[in-house]
Design a protein around this nucleic acid. Structure first.
Lengths: 347, 347
DNA sequence: TATGAAAATGTAAGCGCTTACATTAAGGCG
DNA sequence: CGCCTTAATGTAAGCGCTTACATTTTCATA
């Protein structure tokens, strides 16, 4: 025979606000206030409620709260991938700072796919993110429209353009790369090549390439015959691309890499090919991840303050969300780390 | 004078299910079905509904859905930090696999703080995570109790113990390290030291240390006088620790590092001290992150299949959540990558 | 001690969905 | 051409919270 059980007291179900209220002999409103604005309730009652909370092991249901309160204290971020030191580092700092202010982070990654990014943004909005951190400017304009309609503020990071009307924190990838390139040209290099990350849907990569071209033009170098290879983010791809680019005529005496990971690959390939760096060929990177200064020879690269960017992005976004205000974009300073991998060309 | 506006048609508010239903001339139930189990509604109506959805730019409210449906298709993960290649890599794979099955990932990081981890776990549960990925076994048992009470299945990763009753995917840090240590002892080393990550609240670090001790005991080496330095996860800390450990008497001829990052630091410090590796001192790591094979000399280390672990963890967790079943723990194979940084001691 | 403002608490109406159950429409068959 | 089964759709009751507003309590002051 089936055991009978009162449906009114379902055993071991998770406690709700109402359970707490009942046990503490107060209304649900009071319990809610104890949790959200404790100073609105007198100490005696508050203690009673808190005791009930502890005894019951009560934890508020987030969805219900979000539904009723219409905000979530949650910030979403859509990054290309976590498996990339620069984002991992920046996002970690971002999260720490958010946590310090009682916000939670929701991360999604798009694997550098534009369509996926769009979906993730919509998902995050649907999940009630109060604000969004996005990487780079390049995306379907309808998306910003969508976010505006739902009044979800968005901040762009890892990029900076003076004239954009959407707030950002970052640096000019183009200018930073151009600075580095000028230095390379000053050393006397005329035959150069570039290994770039895939520029399709990645405006940072595009801007870095543009930076090299800009400086090249200034130095009266024929940009059109500069070999440019686009490839994916990995040491292995960097190696392949490097081998390929060194087959070019005239053979480059300096190879720009769109990021440090590609540069490390190039360095490794050079070593395998029996070329010495920088005597036979100079190699530069971008990002200044830890490995850059450890490589042999150490890598000349552009230093980017990833953690600072993450931390400050958090602050800005929190302001945008709580004060409903649109901040000035901030431009971070990058600087060139001149290390052994760059030298003058062989004469 | 204030403009009058019907409160029934608040302009520009975000569309709801009811709006869609009204526009498509069906009930809210039908709209809901179109979205969640499309084959339950006849094509003609479905098209009508979908059109309305598109025209309105409707996106379902996640919180409301979660509240009503009592599940979220969300998996939570609490990792020590994202700023660590092994977690970043594993979690990235984890997320990709979850995405492939329509699940979303929520990541929180605990900065290796036990209390913070506990809070994050509770938060994730409150946010309605259908399942949780946790790193390592070590934590307040009450937490597993808490999760059981709310019937939130949890899977432990990056660790594996035969006798534990909570499901896990990982490897035995102790055995893996012991294997490596045996190899080191076979080479003839008797004076050894270890640079470990902080073992407080980090059972992986503890197990790796235990592995070295185990193998040492087998080799009849006096474990008690082995210098062990615990430090934080960074190249810089690795350098400092190495300098310190090399001051020990007798000076170690081989130094075990709890992870590759510390080992890279040790390598760097050795170079600075004018010691050549492995002639003057052998150094080993753990994890086999990319940098390990790139270092100079390349690092002998334990290879761990992080991406595979992430991917399979996702599969297991999805099963646990959807089938409400408790899987067998799976032990992944690690293997030793013998590279230049390990050699016999000077005679 | 009566009085009224301020503080504390309670009441109850949603928030936007899902889903059990009720109702209606559509076929298949004798 | 009714009758019954099955497929499609509708109705409405929550899910667990927050919060505007109503009510009660407290307490300084006259």
């Amino acid at each position: 025979m089936t055991r009978e059980r009162s449906p009114l007291t379902p055993e071991s179900s998770v406690p709700t606000l109402a359970d707490v209220a009942r046990r503490a002999n107060v209304s649900t409103a009071t319990v809610s206030r104890c949790l959200n604005s404790p100073d609105q309730v007198i100490e005696r009652t508050r203690n009673r409620v808190m005791d009930a909370v502890n005894e019951l092991g009560y934890a508020p249901n987030f969805s219900a709260r979000a539904l009723a309160a219409r905000h979530t204290n949650t910030i979403g971020a859509v990054i290309p991938t976590m498996d990339n030191a620069i984002f991992a580092r920046g996002i970690q700092a971002f999260q720490e700072e958010l946590g310090r202010h009682g916000f939670t982070l929701l991360v999604a990654s798009s694997s550098y796919k534009e369509a996926l990014e769009e979906e993730q943004i919509r998902t995050l909005a649907a999940r009630g993110a109060d604000g969004l951190l996005l990487i780079g400017y390049h995306r379907n304009p309808a998306l910003h429209e969508f976010l505006r309609a739902r009044s979800v503020p968005a901040l762009v990071a890892w990029a900076y353009e003076v004239d954009s009307d959407i707030p950002a924190i970052g640096f000019s990838n183009r200018n930073a790369m151009a600075d580095l390139a000028r230095l390379v040209f000053e050393k006397g290099h005329r035959d150069i090549g570039m290994i770039s990350a895939d520029t399709k849907g990645n405006d940072r990569a595009r801007d870095r390439l543009a930076g090299v071209r800009l400086a090249a033009r200034e130095a009266a170098i024929d940009v059109d015959r500069m070999p440019v290879i686009e490839t994916t983010y990995s040491i292995e791809s960097g190696m392949q691309a490097f081998r390929q680019i060194m087959g070019w005529t005239p053979r480059p005496t300096a190879v720009f890499c769109g990021n440090d990971v590609l540069a490390i690959g190039a360095l490794k390939a050079a070593k395998e090919m029996g070329l010495s760096v920088p005597e036979d060929v100079s190699i530069t990177g971008f990002d200044d991840i830890e490995i850059a200064s450890l490589a042999e020879p150490a890598l000349t690269t552009v230093h980017v303050p990833h953690r600072e960017m993450g931390r400050r992005a958090a602050g800005m976004l929190i302001d945008m969300v709580t004060k409903r205000t649109v901040p000035e974009s901030v431009e971070l300073q990058t600087d060139i780390r001149l290390r052994r991998s760059l030298g003058p060309p062989k004469t």
